[in-house]
Amino acid sequence: MNWLLIVLGGLLTLSGLIWTLQGVGILPGSAMSGVTLWAIVGPIVAVVGIALLAWGIARRRRARP
Score class of each variant (00 low, 15 high):
P65Y: 06
T36K: 06
V35A: 07
V41W: 04
G29I: 05
I26Y: 10
I6N: 03
P28D: 11
A63F: 01
W38Q: 01
S15Y: 10
R62T: 13
V47E: 10
V45T: 11
G49H: 01
G16W: 01
I6V: 14
L37H: 10
V35W: 03
L8G: 06
L53C: 09
R61G: 07
G9K: 00
W38G: 01
I57M: 10
W55T: 13
G23P: 04
L17I: 13
M1K: 08
I57S: 00
R62L: 07
W55F: 10
R61V: 14
A46M: 00
L52C: 15
G9E: 00
I57Y: 10
P65V: 09
I26W: 11
G23V: 04
L5M: 11
T36L: 11
G42F: 00
I44R: 07
R64H: 12
R59K: 08
S30T: 15
G34N: 06
W19D: 02
T36D: 05
I44G: 01
G29S: 12
L53D: 04
M1Y: 05
A31E: 08
S33M: 04
S15D: 06
W19H: 08
S33G: 10
A51P: 00
V35G: 00
A58V: 11
L14T: 14
R62G: 07
T36H: 10
R61T: 05
V24W: 03
L14C: 09
S30M: 02
G25D: 09
V48W: 01
W3H: 11
I50F: 07
G25M: 06
L5E: 08
G10L: 04
R59C: 06
P28A: 12
G10A: 03
S33I: 03
I40K: 12
G29T: 07
N2K: 09
G29V: 12
W55H: 11
I50P: 01
S15A: 15
T20C: 05
R62I: 08
P65H: 03
A63Q: 06
V41R: 00
P28K: 14
I6M: 09
A54M: 13
A31Y: 10
L27P: 04
P43Y: 00
W55P: 02
T20N: 13
T20Y: 14
G42E: 01
W3Q: 12
R62C: 01
M32A: 15
V35F: 04
Q22L: 03
W38Y: 15
T36E: 09
Q22H: 04
V7H: 02
R60G: 06
V7E: 14
I50D: 05
I57N: 01
G34T: 07
L52W: 09
T36P: 01
L21A: 15
V47K: 03
W3D: 14
A46R: 00
T20P: 03
L27I: 07
L8M: 11
G9N: 03
L8Y: 07
S15L: 15
A63C: 02
I44M: 11
I44F: 11
A46S: 12
M1D: 08
L52K: 00
L52A: 12
A58R: 06
L52H: 05
I44V: 15
L12D: 02
V41A: 12
L21G: 10
R60P: 00
A39E: 08
I57E: 09
G42N: 05
L17G: 15
S30Q: 00
W19K: 00
V35S: 02
R64Q: 13
G34Q: 05
L17W: 09
A46P: 00
A31F: 13
I26E: 14
N2P: 01
L14F: 12
